[in-house]
Computed example of a mutant assay.
Amino acid sequence: MDQLARENLAEWKRILAYWEKYTPDYQRGGFHGRLNYENQPILDAPRSIILTGRILWTFSLAYRYFHRRKYLVLADRAYHYLYNHFRDTKNGGVYWSVTANGAPLETRKQLYGHAFAIYGLSEYYAASKFKPALDFAQELFKTVDKHGFDAQRGGYYEAFGTDWAVVDDLILSKQPWNKSQNTHLHIIEAFTNLYRVWPDALLRERVAHLTDAFLDKLISPKTYRLRLFFDENWTPKDETVSYGHDIEASWLLWETAEVLNDHARSERVKQVCIKMAEAACSGLGEDGALDYEFDPLTNHHNHERSWWVLAEQMVGFLNAFQLTGQQHFRDKADKSWEFIKKYVIDNQKGDWFGTVKPDLTPVKNDKVNFWKCPYHNSRACYEVVRRLG
C-alpha cells in the first residue's frame, strides 16, 4: 500500500476512535452538540442537523468499509436521533437545530442542512440496507425539490420558514442574495450519494442540472473559481475567493461526473476540475497549506489554515494528479498531509485542531460544535485510502 494511504488509514481509525469515545450522549440520546478543547461536553449546547447528518455519514461509511459492528451501532444512534428529533412531521423536511434535550429549536428550513440529512441517510442505507432510511431520504429529496427548486431560472434557493414560506433572513447567505455556491455544492454532493442507492430518473435529471449549473454559472469562466453568492437570476454578488471550496468542488464535481457516467459531460467536467485545481494553487503558502480566503476588492488575505481546507486540498490535489498524471499535484497532496501531521493533528487531546494561525500555532477551540464534525477529515482519509490503497 502507498505510504500516504497507509498513514491515512491509521489516521482514519484514530479519528473514528475519538468520536466513538467522546461524543455519544448516553443520558439523552444522540451525540453531544459541543465539546470544549478538553473534550468535556457542554451539556446545554444545541444540536445541529449538520453535525448529526455528518456523524451519520461518517459512521455509516466506516461500517461499510471496515465491517465492524460498533460503527453500525453508532450510525444507528445517529439515524434514530435524526429521525426522532429533527424530522418536521407537520410541514415536512428537517429542523436546522434542536435543544440539548431534543426539542425543536431553530425550525426554519435551510437547504444546506437538508443536504447533509440526505447525505447521511443515503450512506446509512448503503451500509445498513434499512429501507425506512432510504424512504426518509427520498421524502427529503422530494420535499426539497418541491419547495426549493427554481424551475424558471434553475438551481435551488437557500432557505425557507418553518412552513416553507419565503423568508428574508437566510442565515448562511449575505443578504439579500438567495442562491449560494456553498448550498449548491452540498446539494449536489448529497444528491449524487442518493443517486448511488436510488437511480431515480428525476434525481438523475437534477444531478445533471446541478452539474451544468456549476459549469455555466457557479464557476467563473475567467478564473475557474467559485463565485460565492448570487441573486435569483444568477447574477454574481461577491468576488471573495474561498480556496477550500474551490479545491473541494474540483474533486466532488468529478465524483458526480463519474456517477452520472455521461461521457460528453464528464469530459467537460474533467477539464474544468483540472483548471480549478490549478487556480487553487495560487492560495498555497510555502509550507504547502492553502490560505482560507482572499477578497480582491479589499485585497484582504485571511492566512489562517483551517482543518477542513487542509482535508479537502489533500483529496483535491490527489484527484488532479490522478486526472492528469502531473507529478506536481501529487507532490502538493503529499505536502498537504505533511502539514496536517505536523500542525493540525492534535496528538494530546485527539482529533484535529480547527484552526492553525499564520504563525503555525494551533487555536485551542472546541473539538466538536455546530460545525466541527468528523466528516471532512475522515472522508479525506477514506478518499486517500480508496484511491491509493
Rank of each mutant, 00 (worst) to 15 (best):
G161L: 08
K237L: 12
I187W: 01
L253W: 05
D287G: 15
T211E: 09
D135A: 02
W57I: 02
V344M: 12
A279P: 09
C281W: 13
R330Q: 10
Y83N: 00
G53Y: 01
D287M: 15
S128D: 04
K367P: 06
L16K: 01
A126R: 04
D76Q: 10
L16S: 00
Q327K: 14
E158Q: 05
R305D: 12
H85G: 01
K335E: 13
R225W: 11
E38G: 06
Q181C: 09
G244Y: 06
E293L: 15
L194W: 02
D246G: 06
S128F: 03
D331G: 12
L105K: 09
A115S: 13
Y224R: 10
T235V: 14
A115Y: 03
L226W: 02
L121Y: 02
R268W: 08
V356D: 01
L121F: 06
A208I: 11
E20H: 07
Y382R: 08
R206F: 05
R54Y: 04
E338P: 06
G92R: 05
E304K: 15
H85W: 03
V197W: 01
Y112C: 10
P236Y: 06
E239S: 12
E304N: 15
L172R: 05
R47C: 01
R206N: 07
H184N: 04
H328K: 13
Y26Q: 08
N377W: 04
W96H: 01
L51F: 02
Y343I: 06
K13Q: 12
R6F: 15
F229D: 01
V368K: 00
I55Y: 01
Q348E: 12
N8G: 10
V166D: 15
